[in-house]
Design a protein around this nucleic acid. Structure first.
Lengths: 344, 344
DNA sequence: CTGAAAGCGCTTACAG
DNA sequence: CTGAAAGCGCTTACAG
């Protein structure tokens, strides 16, 4: 049965079948028939044979010849984190629309892993990279950029390097959340963030601090940064301290995992939300709606962030403008539920 | 600055630097020095230069030459579904350990998408595929298998084709869940599953039915299959009917999304769990622990399923035994929380 | 023990 | 308008 045949047909096979040279076939396939003034009839015959024989060019060979692989390398910190799996799906969809496929890896927030993954993905022929950079990876990114590797950062960026990125307006995110809590009448508002120097974390912290200061609540500023490695127990310790010792009135969690750990802790402590403590979470999670008290949260425009990143990257790949910096800063949205209302 | 140089060093560069032929370098790199009785001193010099020049072989060229890409193609139904993103992470980790990288795509349960993705992934040079097959994809898988493409199915399999797979013991999963509910004294136990002919769904349904029959509860069997496209509203309609009309005492949800939609509905309906209705969910979710009443669930051995799939696949790729069928059927675990206890 | 040469499948100057 | 040939970077018979 023909359809079960194993070996792929090559351009040679097509050429032989039509009775022309491989050059001709190649030209026709690549839409250069007009340019080389190949007879329409000829081009038609070739295309017909290509269809008939179900020929698809070997990408490895094409790439080797100097072309592209149509492969986009994606490095997230952890594909199993819902936020990153959502954004991966968006990236996948947009990439597919533009005829690209995604190869990926998870860095676990370690720059050594990031470096390894970059090497691997480029070695596999990725035409460009979309990266969630982590602490300590600034020089790595700079190097890539200087090397003119097409690259777009997502979720976080570096202010001192002119690499393109597609990120949330992180400062604004905590500004609107903090404002909302202040408007609700809360004063002792505390923030939990990761222990990181990355822009997303720093901006979320400064958005909170700036807003507190502007409201004359400088004295109430209370930020705790927890480690990546010990997140759960750190969050538990922090939440307990906030509630029991600091008498915090409202807690702002600055990522989805921090929110979930925090909510778990609050539940175990039997804290009533929002009566005892108000809460605002970050990113989306099924948990927010299904928690005893529906949880307010800052929603990221995941669709836009992902799609924009792909578009910028593909533009770089195609037009060779890998150096031109594109900066996409996207708007957060505050979804208000009962957890952050004064009289919820 | 040397480290910023763009062009990659090739085997030729190394050969020239050492003053030997590319053949020699290639042999040494590929660990065939002994086999070809190359002088240790020579091999040492070559390796030193390789390190010094930071040479890594071009995979495209290697693959073109007849070798492999060290790329594993992964097709899930949706990378943003937590269950699949978790398993993707496991697959990624194991693949990396074995020196493979993952390219992936989401089929959205459509066999036409599956076919397209297979073509794309193979065209990009994937050495083998790990696939979550969907309804209507049986012939596609059979064809791949006959073509001797290394392939392993996960999550679901086809009983009539001898393709390798790594799956949960789906029948056993609902058997232990149903038994547990019966032991707790529930009689009117209902099941919600997807509208699908795939093995995972069919086995979960039959595990439930068999157990009900064995317990003399044949008359109480109540299964509703909901569509993939309209899942949420279908689940809502079903749960309402179960509770209000059928007076169901316990609901068994047979996937994570069904569980989450179901719990959302029960919450909206203000149903008390487990007093009004007992519940057992499927797969893991942060929601289960944080729901008003902690939810019992059937836990899949995600680690094992993913790791086994990779191991089987790589064995096929390396040893060319793509035809030999390996069947991994892994044990479910029932995690009991308050939601399924008679006097919870 | 080591090297010259072919060839994987493709594209693209270069000729005609 | 069309074809012969080089070359992308690699591996592997084949010689010696």
């Amino acid at each position: 049965m023909k359809e079960f045949e194993n070996k792929k047909v090559s351009i040679k096979d097509v050429a032989k079948a039509v009775g022309v040279s491989t050059t001709l076939v190649s030209l026709v396939i690549n839409g250069k028939a007009k340019q080389y003034r190949i007879a329409d009839e000829m081009a038609g015959r070739v295309m017909a044979k290509v269809k008939e024989m179900n020929y698809t060019p070997n990408l490895m060979a094409r790439n080797l010849r100097g072309g592209k692989t149509q492969l986009i390398g994606l490095i997230v910190t952890d594909i199993s984190n819902p936020f990153f799996s959502m954004i991966s799906r968006v990236i996948e969809n947009r990439a597919n629309e533009l005829n690209y496929t995604v190869i990926f890896g998870s860095s676990d927030e370690k720059y050594t892993n990031t470096q390894k993954l970059i090497d691997v993905l480029l070695n596999k022929g990725a035409d460009g990279l979309i990266i969630v950079p982590c602490d300590g990876s600034e020089r790595i990114m700079e190097k890539l950029h200087l090397n003119k590797t097409p690259i777009v950062l997502i979720d976080r960026c570096f202010k001192n390097i002119d690499i393109s990125f597609s990120c949330l307006d992180n400062h604004r995110a905590t500004v609107i959340a903090t404002q909302h809590l202040i408007e609700q009448g809360f004063r002792k508002i505390s923030l939990i963030a990761y222990q990181s120097q990355m822009s997303n974390v720093m901006d979320r912290i400064s958005g909170y601090k700036d807003t507190m200061r502007k409201a004359g609540l400088e004295k109430q500023i209370n930020v705790k940064q927890v480690s990546f490695s010990n997140t759960k127990s750190d969050v538990f310790g922090t939440v307990k301290r906030f509630v029991e010792k600091d008498k915090t009135e409202a807690i702002l969690f600055s990522t989805n995992m921090l929110s979930i750990h925090g909510l778990t802790c609050l539940k175990e402590m039997n804290v009533k939300i929002p009566d005892d403590v108000a809460v605002v979470g970050f990113d989306e999670s099924d948990v927010f709606d299904l928690y005893e008290c529906p949880v307010s949260y800052i929603k990221q425009p995941v669709e836009q962030i992902g799609k924009t990143a792909v578009d910028i990257l593909v533009d770089k790949i195609k037009n060779g403008e890998s150096t031109k910096q594109s900066m996409a800063v996207l708007e957060p949205e505050l979804i208000v539920k009962r957890s952050s209302l004064r009289n919820g």
